[in-house]
């Protein structure tokens, strides 16, 4: 069953009348099923972040439609979208997006608080996720008191508190060192395995992408190709490198 469906997404920046436009996305269609763990890769400027923003409703496509969990998100209002995001989507950002004035626990609880869940429910969920991601000890710390890896794990936990249909991650390892990156990607693996969630991440990090089950490659605003992981991670990484070199990325990443 497709949890996310994108049909013929076109995104054009600039004023069409004045003919000074950039076509960021060109007729992209994709479909993601429940329980999938997919990465979208592409060079800088290939349109991958634009795609993610459109899939999450943060940005509107010029034409085309996005359906998530049966809801056509480009047909609902800005406010309904916000509600939809906090109920159906989990978001993980490159720069973590944690609020400095809140503790780790409070940051995690924020989407539940916005949903006006009871404090007992909140506490239970926070404890459960903190245990899952090993951040129980830092629950009362502030974001500026913990490491980048811990911040991102907090952000991942926050993305999960409302049991979203799908988690969208934009370069989740972009601001992390390799050890922390591995940490986060293992978190994602845990999520997919234990919670049967769906994850879509946008990255240019081959190491991160190698954790996924499927990688979709974008070039110049169009889907270029995709590969599916059938064996171990290292082998899959080699496949990704090979594919990247085909679409014009560099071969010698190591």
């Amino acid at each position: 069953m497709a949890i996310l469906e994108a049909n013929h997404i076109v995104k054009i920046y600039g004023d069409i009348k004045e003919d000074r436009t950039t076509q960021a996305l060109n007729e992209i269609s994709l479909s993601i099923n429940k329980g999938e763990f997919i990465a979208i890769m592409g060079a800088s400027g290939s349109g991958k972040t634009t795609l993610l923003n459109i899939l999450s409703g943060l940005d509107k496509p010029t034409s085309g439609a996005v359906t998530i969990a049966g809801e056509k998100i480009n047909e609902i209002s800005r406010n309904q979208l916000a509600l939809f995001r906090r109920q159906q989507l989990g978001f993980v950002f490159q720069d973590f997006n944690l609020l400095d004035s809140l503790t780790v626990k409070e940051n995690m609880a924020l989407p539940m608080i916005l949903e006006k869940k009871s404090s007992a429910d909140i506490d239970q969920k926070v404890q459960e996720l903190a245990a899952l991601f090993g951040i129980e000890d830092i629950l009362d710390k502030y974001p500026y008191q913990i490491s980048g890896g811990q911040q991102q794990r907090t952000a991942v936990s926050r993305a999960l508190v409302n049991n979203p249909s799908i988690i969208l991650a934009d370069e989740p390892t972009g601001n992390l060192d390799s050890a922390s990156s591995a940490d986060i990607m293992e978190c994602f693996e845990t999520i997919v395995e234990n919670l049967a969630s769906t994850i879509l991440l946008v990255t240019h990090d081959i190491f991160a992408a190698s954790y996924c089950q499927k990688v979709i490659f974008i070039k110049d605003g169009m889907i270029h190709s995709s590969i599916i992981r059938e064996s171990g991670r290292e082998e899959f990484a080699q496949q990704i490198i090979a594919e990247l070199s085909v679409i014009g990325g560099r071969k010698d990443v190591f």
């Binding site: 509600l83 995001r85 906090r86 109920q87 978001f91 997006n97 944690l98 609020l99 916005l114 926050r158």
Partner: peptide, 15 residues
């Protein structure tokens, strides 16, 4: 910046 972050995790304009 704060409200941009909040918006991304789904805070409505009314909120």
């Amino acid at each position: 910046e704060k409200y941009r972050k909040l918006h991304a995790i789904g805070i409505t304009d009314k909120e």
